[in-house]
């Protein structure tokens, strides 16, 4: 029966780590997607200063969370998103509207793909 308890502990730990991974990544993905949408809207309305401010907040937030993101995600994934967010701020500062919108769309797609890969779906299982 001791081994039964060990099995239960292993399952509990797996669920705990897996649950943390799922919750952390998906909840933050929604926040980032929301902020990117806000940045895109600001840029489309030519509110460049506000768009730059949102981009700065995005970049700062992601850099502060990068440690945990690297634990739960492939480093190349988090690195790619980090690069896109860094570029967003530069494009806003230099007035590259099209580049800003394209980079924001790409970052959003990457983040949502990352989130969808964590969700329990048949295509993810198979």
């Amino acid at each position: 029966m001791k081994r039964g308890w060990i099995a239960v502990i292993m399952i509990a730990l797996s669920l705990a780590f897996g649950g943390m991974d799922y919750y952390y990544v998906t909840s933050n993905a929604d926040i980032y997607a929301g902020m990117l949408t806000e940045a895109q809207e600001k840029m489309e309305q030519s509110e460049i200063t506000e768009a730059e401010s949102v981009a700065q907040r995005l970049d700062y937030r992601f850099r502060s969370q990068k440690g945990l993101m690297n634990i739960f995600m492939h480093h190349s994934e988090s690195g790619g998103i980090s690069c896109d967010l860094a570029m967003l701020e530069m494009y806003a500062r230099t007035g590259g509207t099209e580049e800003f919108l394209a980079t924001a769309a790409r970052a959003k797609r990457e983040i949502m793909t990352m989130k969808n890969s964590k969700i329990l779906r048949w295509e993810n299982i198979f």
Partner: peptide, 25 residues
Amino acid sequence: DADRPLLNSLIPIMMIVAIELIVSL
């Protein structure tokens, strides 16, 4: 692959051990 998170291997190993223990019981 250092790019890959350690948890991606740790969780499957723990689940496999747990399943094996339950099956053997």
